[in-house]
């Protein structure tokens, strides 16, 4: 068995500039943060691919957490456990609870924020939670310059989390950019609801991550933000749908709720065709139950 296994080289850059240069020169280098996703891939070791690894946990810029009154800024290599430890003052209780529920502390202290957001084909709960609360990420886009393309330059930009993925949930910046920071807004008077249905590790085709944030106003809600993530099959955050929701007067009657649910079904079919029927049905039912709970003042 060991014959076909190639030993990879390990690169350990000590600064962000080194990382950008090395990754720019060789885009096939596999970025290794916490390793909880890469190591858990079936046959990670035995498939013999042996891509060279670039370990990024020793880069100070990526392991720093800082906070102001308005937001918390964490480097991409900060673990989810560190985020919970440093962000407990700043985060709303629902956000905190949702992030705590992602995994056991054993996995949380290994998995990093950047790693959880940048998995190429699988969306986890963290992307749904951060997208719902309007978190932003800083990415460094890599480009080659010079006659022979030897000079590596990078440009920096801030994006909302949902812009990292297409409607099928695929990470759009794989091998094109490096995620360096995440900015999480401080808790406000907004109300947040997060739910997970199914087991994301064992039943990927039926799991639904649900996140909903809104500002309560008399007779309605404003700034609603609904985010749905399906681990292997899609990522849904639709501005049109959110606008329709904000025009709903509260408490809505059952017919209005049914109409909104049908609209959600339609939007899901249009924008996330790869979501399985059970995921769409679960999303619809979750949405309906949350709307009923909001209208009865339960959440």
């Amino acid at each position: 068995m060991a014959d076909n296994i190639k030993a990879p080289s390990i690169h350990i850059p000590k600064s962000l500039a080194d990382l950008l240069t090395e990754k720019g020169k060789d885009p096939s280098l596999r970025i290794f943060a916490g390793g909880s996703y890469i190591m858990a891939r079936p046959f990670f070791y035995t498939d013999g691919s042996g891509d060279d690894i670039i370990s990024i946990t020793q880069i100070p810029e990526l392991t720093k957490v800082s906070q102001t009154d308005r937001y918390l800024e964490a480097g991409a290599c900060v673990t989810i456990e560190q985020l919970l430890n440093s962000g407990s003052y700043l985060m709303g209780k629902e956000t905190f609870r949702a992030i705590t529920s992602i995994a056991s502390s054993m996995v949380r202290s290994q998995a990093t924020i950047g790693g959880a957001l940048c998995t190429p084909d699988t969306r986890f709960f963290l992307s749904c939670v951060l997208s719902t609360i309007g978190a932003q990420v800083e990415i460094r886009l890599l480009s080659k310059r010079g006659l022979k393309g030897h000079k590596i330059t990078s440009s920096q930009m801030w994006l909302p989390v949902n812009k990292l993925y297409n409607s099928e949930g695929v990470f759009l910046y794989e091998n094109k950019a490096i995620l360096t920071k995440v900015r999480i807004p401080a808790k406000t008077n907004n109300i947040q609801v997060f739910r997970t249905l199914g087991n994301p590790m064992r039943e990927m085709d039926s799991t639904v991550f649900f996140g909903f944030e809104y500002t309560p106003v008399p007779n309605g809600i404003s700034h609603p933000n609904l985010c749905l993530a399906f681990p292997k099959n899609g990522f849904f955050q639709n501005l049109d749908f959110s606008n329709q929701l904000s025009s709903l007067s509260f408490p809505p009657d059952s017919q209005q709720i049914e109409d909104m649910a049908k609209l959600l079904e339609k939007k899901l079919e249009e924008s996330c065709p790869s979501a399985t029927p059970i995921q769409r049905e679960r999303s619809r039912r979750l949405f309906v139950s949350i709307l009923y709970q909001i209208s009865q003042g339960i959440v």
């Binding site: 909880s36 190591m39 891939r41 290994q110 590790m201």
Partner: peptide
């Protein structure tokens, strides 16, 4: 890997899934 939880060891006193820890 990472599915059964039977390979847990203590690394520097903290419980960890050994299948998720690479040699380096």
């Amino acid at each position: 890997d990472a599915g059964c939880g039977n390979c847990i060891v203590l690394i520097n006193g903290a419980a960890r899934l050994s299948c998720l820890i690479p040699a380096f």
